[in-house]
């Protein structure tokens, strides 16, 4: 669209050089930075931030892994090294508020960094999206591309069960004029996609089935057109599940930020 604002992604270093401070830091995370599919989510979220005129920055090369998978695998040394490095950087830039599209980064910075000396206000991008909708800063088009589509929402463990955020993402989805259908296991009972606890970086232990297959089968039971997710690792796991079921032509797996961008054709 021609009236689209010019895309602008500055780093904290850029802001610092200008002697300015951004409203908020967008913590991109490893997946959002390097995973081809999750990069699209980062881009979608950045487009939204640009569109509503939020003055944000990223850390760029000064960002490191938060250390979540290392810590949960049991490697406290690696966790402390990367976490303390990040806290040094964040404190140097006097960062106060952070938004991230990854529930693992969200959880670690919010709940684990304080014990290491990092205290920030941390929100997940779905919470921010809900706020922006509530404030009328994002106006979703009625009768958009999702009108009448069936959307099922997969709760990630670290946003849902671990941090108790169930409603914000659902409120965002309700605005899409689509039909929100819940899976049998949802909210506090939501089933893990299989990636957490550093499982993303190893093969499943031997068993009857992969966890993401179990979850995608449950999603398929409600016959969705779209599986909505809030986590880059869930995104991978659920997409792999859809492919394994050869349903990629019928079912899309999308992050909430992508849904908003597609609805508003940003």
């Amino acid at each position: 669209m021609s009236d689209l604002k010019q895309l602008k992604i500055d780093t904290m270093a850029d802001f610092s050089a200008r002697g300015e401070e951004p409203e908020i830091l967008f913590w991109v995370g490893c997946a959002g930075s390097f995973d081809a599919r999750a990069q699209k989510v980062s881009l979608a979220f950045v487009k939204i931030l640009n569109e509503v005129g939020i003055n944000f920055a990223i850390l760029g090369n000064e960002e490191s892994c938060t250390g979540d998978p290392a810590r949960r695998a049991g490697n406290e040394f690696v966790f402390q090294m990367t976490a303390l490095q990040n806290i040094e950087t964040l404190n140097m830039y006097k960062v106060k508020k952070i938004v991230t599209a990854c529930p693992h980064c969200f959880n670690t910075i919010k709940n684990e960094y304080p014990a290491l000396g990092g205290n920030y206000e941390v929100i997940h991008h779905t919470q921010m999206l809900q706020d922006l909708i509530d404030q009328g800063r994002i106006k979703l088009k009625e009768g958009g591309v999702f009108k009448g589509k069936r959307i099922t929402y997969h709760d990630s463990c670290y946003l849902g069960r671990v941090n108790g955020v169930y409603e914000a993402p659902r409120k965002v989805l309700e605005q899409l004029d689509a039909q929100l259908v819940e899976m049998k296991r949802c909210k506090t009972n939501g089933l893990c996609c299989g990636a957490g606890g550093a499982q993303m970086f190893k093969e499943d232990e031997s068993g009857d089935k992969r966890i993401n297959i179990e979850r995608i089968e449950e999603a398929m039971d409600v016959k969705p057109d779209i599986v909505a997710v809030n986590c880059p690792f869930c995104l991978t796991m659920m997409s792999d599940g859809v492919k394994a079921k050869e349903k990629q032509d019928d079912v899309m797996v999308l992050d909430l930020a992508e849904l908003i961008v597609q609805n508003n054709v940003l």
Binding site: A31, F34, I58, G60, A70, N75, V78, T82, K202
Partner: peptide, 27 residues
Amino acid sequence: AEWTPMFTAIENNGAVWQIADDRDKWA
């Protein structure tokens, strides 16, 4: 054993994967 490359990548590369690209290449 599969966790070792992840640990090493975080230590050396600041990311869970050993990727040579800049972290903000996507941007």
